[in-house]
C-alpha cells in the first residue's frame, strides 16, 4: 500500500506578537512506498512527529490530503478511519504507551483483541516478535514493571503484530541502547522487506544505514 501526502500543511493556533498561528508543516508532497524503510530526521520541533501523526490519520491537516492507495483518510468517518488504522497502519507512538491493566503480551495482542479472539497464528507471531525484540521473558509482566526500553519494544511489537501495510514509528529507539536500537531497526527493515511502507522518525545517529530513503525536516519543510 502506498501512502501519499498531497499539498499537506498543518498550522496550530498560537498567539504571538507576529502571528496567530504556528506553521508545523509547510505545504508538502510526500510518498511512502511499499517495501521501503524511510527514515525521517530533523531537529526537535521541525515537524517530524506532526507529519507522522497526520499520515497516521490521528491529526487533521490544515490543508491537503493523505491518500492510502488513493483513499483519502480524512474523508472517512471516524469509525471507518479507526478500522482502517487497525487493519492497515501500525503506529509506534512517541514515549511510553501501554494499557496498564494488561500484561506485556496482552498489550501486544491489543490491536487484535479489541475486535476478536486472537488466532493461533497471531499468538505465534506475538511470541516471535517477543523473541525477536528480546522481551520474551517479560510476556506476563504488567507494564508498570517494565523499563522505558522494554516498553518501547513492546510498542514496536504491538505495531508490527497485525503485519500492517504501513508502519509509522515515532522515535522508536528513544530509550534503547545500541544493541536494542539495532534490533528495532532490523525489525522495521524486516517489515519493509515483507512489503510494508515504513516511516521511522528519529534523532538516532546512524539510522541512515538501515534506511532505503532518508528525508530531513527543517522548520516544517521536507527535504529529500
Amino acid at each position: 500500500m502506498t501512502l501519499t501526502a498531497k499539498q499537506l500543511s498543518k498550522e496550530f493556533p498560537r498567539k504571538s506578537r507576529t502571528s496567530n498561528c504556528f506553521t508545523a508543516l509547510c505545504p508538502l508532497d510526500f510518498t511512502l512506498e511499499p517495501g521501503k524503510l524511510t527514515v525521517l530526521t530533523g531537529r526537535s520541533g521541525s515537524g517530524k512527529s506532526t507529519l507522522l501523526n497526520v499520515l497516521a490519520g490521528l491529526m487533521q491537516p490544515t490543508q491537503g490530503q493523505v491518500l492510502a492507495d488513493g483513499q483519502d483518510l480524512y474523508a472517512m468517518p471516524d469509525v471507518a478511519l479507526s478500522e482502517f488504522r487497525n487493519r492497515h497502519i501500525g503506529v509506534v507512538p512517541q514515549g511510553q504507551t501501554a494499557v496498564y491493566s494488561l500484561s506485556l503480551l496482552e498489550n501486544i495482542l491489543l490491536p487484535v483483541t479489541l475486535f476478536r479472539r486472537p488466532s493461533d497464528a497471531e499468538q505465534q507471531r506475538a511470541q516471535l516478535l517477543l523473541t525477536e525484540l528480546g522481551i520474551v521473558k517479560l510476556a506476563d509482566v504488567p507494564p508498570a514493571e517494565l523499563s522505558g526500553g522494554e516498553m518501547k519494544r513492546m510498542a514496536i511489537a504491538r505495531a508490527l503484530l497485525p503485519q500492517p501495510e504501513i508502519v509509522l514509528a515515532d522515535e522508536p529507539t528513544a530509550d534503547l541502547d545500541e544493541e536494542n536500537t539495532d534490533i528495532v531497526f532490523r525489525a522495521l527493515q524486516t517489515a519493509a522487506k515483507n512489503g510494508a511502507a515504513v516511516l521511522a522518525v528519529t534523532h538516532e545517529q546512524g539510522a541512515e544505514r538501515y534506511a532505503d530513503r532518508v528525508c530531513t525536516m527543517h522548520n516544517g519543510i521536507l527535504e529529500g
Binding site: S82, R85, P93, T97
Partner: peptide, 10 residues
C-alpha cells in the same frame, strides 16, 4: 490515546 492508535473508534 493508545486505544485510538490501535484502531479504537471514538
Amino acid at each position: 490515546a493508545v486505544m485510538r492508535v490501535v484502531g479504537m473508534s471514538r
